[in-house]
Every structure is written in structure tokens, then in C-alpha cells.
Amino acid sequence: MTTASAKERIRNEKKARQHVRIKKGKLARREALAGLLFVLPWIIGAIVFLAYPLVTSFTYGLNNIRITPKGYKFKYIGYGNYTQILLSDTAFLPDLADYVISTLISVPVIVVFALLIAMMLNMKIRGRSFFRVIFFLPVIIVSGPILGMLTEQNAGSVSAIDTQAISAAIGSFLPEILAKPVSGLFANMVTILWYSGVPILLFLSGLQKIDSSMYEASYIDGAGGWETFWKITLPQLKNIVLLSCVYTVVFVSSNDNNTLIALIKASMFSGTKEKGYGYASAMAWLYSLVVLLIVGLFALILTTRKDKYEKEARRTDRELRKEARKIRRVQRRQAKHAKRYQRT
């Protein structure tokens, strides 16, 4: 076979393959188009309501902006807003520190509370559905204004708890930076626990997915409730714990009662020339970064690590492959030496 005919054959085969691919592609394209049509609303929503505002707010953060009846007045100031927030703003950093500490304290409290309630609601008790509704109700009615009214009327705390005495006790042994958020936890016990509606729901769904045969097997092996909780329930809910933590962090960080949200809003509408939308955008970006770091921290702590045996198997596999490569290298070298020996 000549080279030309071989080339022609390859070309024909390629064409034939292309032909087949075109036919397959039409179907695939149709399927892809249908898929795209289904996700198009989401893509449009994400572009219009997520990507565009994100890009806009970032560019706002680099400008000094005044909104006048005759239009927006932009003045590019680079990272001026950021440096001013970090170096001159007397409220942002202290409020941010309070927020970080209170979030790190309140999120585990909310999640643990939600887990306990979910486990109770998962038991076979009379009126289980009614109790589930009761615990989910706050999610429906806990909107900004209602929460604000509760706080205004000092209904954010359990009246049986002597919050003043607790604050005084906490303040006596904790430094101020820690005492304030810890005291705040007791002072806003009701509102904090109100945040647990969705995590309860998540845990309930997680609990219902755990295979009951695992519990049966463990009971046969003599395990009690305590052991099954630590060895079966909690490991099985690890992903839900992470999800609940992320949800709670986002919820706590973005609700109207958050002091930083109030600060950002106040900056947006401040009469100070250097504040306004640009300054508020920069503040919001810094705040978002901190929220992301907190989410990352919880993810780092709670992300499911690989199984110990799987890890060991992978390590052995890696070592075996390394050994095989070494043997092949030795064999190649031996073959090379053998050839050289034959020539000589």
C-alpha cells in the first residue's frame, strides 16, 4: 500500500467518523439545547441578579459615588474606600470582631439545638407532626420586622434567665471582647433558637435516611443509645451538620438585625461625602470575605475526611506503582546493556 492510498484511507475513515459524529451531534445538540432551555432561567437569573451586581458592587467599591437627581457622580479612588474602612472607620472593625466572635459562638449553639430537637422529633411520639410544625413556624414568621419588634420589646431572651446576672458573671472572668458576645447569646436566646427551624428540617431529613439495619446490627452487638449516637447517627449526619452550619452562618450574617448590615446600610445613605454607595460596597466586600472565611472554617472542620483504610489502600497502590516503574526502568536498562554487549 502506497503512502498516498494510506493517507486517502485515513481521510475517508475520518470523514466517515465525522459523518457519524454529525448525526450523533444533532441529537446531542438537540438534547443540549433542551437542557440549556431548562437551565436558561437560572443562567439569566444568575447573570442579572448575581454576576452583574457583584461586578457592579466591586467597581462601586473603587469609586466615591454620589447619587444626585441629575445622575450618579463617580470619582475613581482605587482602594481608597478599603483603606479608609480599615484604617479610619471607628465602627467597622470593632463591629466585625463582635460579629465574628458571636457567630462562632452562636452557630454551634443553633446547630446543636437543632440536632437535639430533630432527634426528638424523629422519635415515635404522639403529635409528632404537630411538634414539627411548631418548631418550623419561626421560619415562616421570623422576618426582619417581627424579629425587630421582638428585640425592641425585650422579648429576645427567656424571661426566666437572669441575663444581667449572667452577663455580670461572664464579665468577671472573660475578657471584654469575649464577654460581650457570650452575654449577647443569653440576652438573645429566644431569637437565636428561632434560627434553628431550617437546620431542624435538614437534620430530620438526614435522620430519616439513615439505614435502620445499622441500628439493629449495633443493638445486636450490644451498643446502647449513647454509642449509636456517636458511632452511627453523628457520622451519618456529618454532611448535614456542615450544611446546617453553612446555612446558619449565611442566615445570621445576612439578617436585618445584624449590626454590620445596619452599618453598611447607614454608610450607603450617609451624608458624609466620603461615604455613600462606594464606601458601603467596599464595606460589603470586606464583610463578605469574612463571612466566606467563617464558612471555610466550618467546612475545614466538618468536611468528611477519607476513610482510613481507603487512605492506606491508596498509599499501597501508589507504592506498588512506584515499584513497578522501578522494575521497568531496571529491565530497560538491562535490555540496553544486553544490546551493547551483543554489539561488542
Binding site: R66, P69, G271
Partner: peptide, 19 residues
Amino acid sequence: TCPDCIMFSDCDFALSNML
């Protein structure tokens, strides 16, 4: 859609935005 006539309380807000 700025209104034609406005009330305001703190003048810094009104002046800084050239309302």
C-alpha cells in the same frame, strides 16, 4: 424618579447628594 419637592431633616444628607 426624584420627587419635585422634598422634606429632609439632616442637611448633610440633602447637600452631599445635591438634592
